[in-house]
C-alpha cells in the first residue's frame, strides 16, 4: 500500500501541496482528479522521489520511500508520462526494452527485443513499428509505446500522468481501455492523474480530488456521481460557476 501523510511541497512562495494525505491499497486503481496546476504531477513525482517533499511522509508497504534502496524501489514502478517522454535518439523497441537492456535484470539484446515486440503487440502495435524512431509515430502511437515501456518489466505499481491528453476521443477511449485491461490482468496498483472524466470512469476503482493543495474528496466512481460535494460536482460537470475559481 502507498500511504501519504501530510505531504507538503512549495516552489518558491507557491505552496502546491499543503498537507496531502491519501492511501492507495495494493491492486487498486486510484485516479486523482483536479484542475490544471493543482499539483497532481508533483504528487506523483514526490512518490517516485523525482521531487523531494518539504514535509510529511510517504510510505510504500510501510517503508519510508526516502530511506529505501533506490534501484530496488524504482524497479517496482512503471510510469507513462504525459508527453510520452520517449528517448528520441533510440528506436521504438529500444525505448520499450530500455530497462531490460540495463541493470540487474539485464537480458540479451535478442531477448529484450522479443519482449519489447510482445509488449508492443499487447498495446495494439505491430512489430514493424519496433524499428521506427519516436518522431515517426503519431501522438496516439507514442502513448502506446510509452505504455508498452511502462509495463515492459511488469512492475507492481504503474503511474499514468494524463494518459489521454492531446488525443482524439476515439484514441483516448482506446488508451483508457488498454490501461484498464492491463492493470486488471497484471493485478498492478495504478495511480492515474487526469482531468478527463471519460478516463476516470474507464480506469478508476476509487477517485481522489486534489484541490488547493489537499485531498478535497475521495470515494468510488459511483459515489463521485452521487456526492453533494460542490467542488466535485463543479469539476465533473465542468461548470464555470462554483467554489473552484475559473481563473487560477
Amino acid at each position: 500500500m502507498i500511504a501519504l501523510r501530510q505531504v507538503t511541497r512549495s516552489f518558491g512562495r507557491n505552496a502546491v501541496l499543503r498537507g496531502v494525505s491519501l492511501d492507495i491499497p495494493s491492486g487498486q486503481s486510484m485516479v486523482i482528479i483536479g484542475g490544471s496546476g493543482t499539483g497532481k504531477s508533483v504528487l506523483l513525482k514526490c512518490i517516485l522521489g523525482l521531487v523531494r517533499p518539504d514535509g510529511g511522509t510517504i510510505t510504500l508497504d510501510g517503508q519510508d520511500v526516502t530511506k529505501v534502496e533506490r534501484d530496488a524501489f524504482l524497479a517496482r514502478f512503471g510510469m507513462l508520462f504525459q508527453g510520452g517522454a520517449l528517448f528520441d535518439s533510440m528506436r521504438v523497441w529500444e525505448n520499450v526494452a530500455f530497462r531490460l537492456l540495463r541493470g540487474g535484470a539485464k537480458q540479451s539484446k535478442a531477448q529484450a527485443r522479443d519482449r519489447a515486440i510482445e509488449k508492443l503487440r499487447r498495446v495494439g502495435l505491430t512489430p514493424d513499428v519496433a524499428d521506427l524512431y519516436p518522431a515517426e509515430l503519431s501522438g496516439g502511437m507514442q502513448k502506446r509505446v510509452g505504455l508498452a515501456r511502462a509495463i515492459a518489466a511488469e512492475p507492481e505499481i504503474i503511474f499514468f500522468d494524463e494518459p489521454t491528453t492531446g488525443l482524439d476521443p476515439i484514441m483516448a477511449g482506446v488508451i483508457n481501455a488498454l490501461i484498464r485491461e492491463i492493470v486488471t490482468e497484471m493485478g498492478a496498483t495504478a495511480i492515474t492523474i487526469t482531468h478527463d472524466m471519460s478516463s476516470v470512469r474507464a480506469i478508476a476503482d476509487r477517485v481522489a480530488m486534489l484541490h488547493a493543495g489537499v485531498i478535497q474528496w475521495t470515494g468510488s466512481v459511483g459515489e463521485m456521481d452521487a456526492t453533494s460535494d460542490p467542488y466535485v460536482q463543479q469539476f465533473i460537470h465542468g461548470r464555470a460557476e462554483g467554489p473552484i475559481a475559473a481563473i487560477r
Partner: peptide, 16 residues
Amino acid sequence: TMKVTEQIDALVTLST
C-alpha cells in the same frame, strides 16, 4: 530538451 520533455525523469523511473 530531454529535461523539458521529461526524458530525464523517465530515465530515473527506469532506474538509470
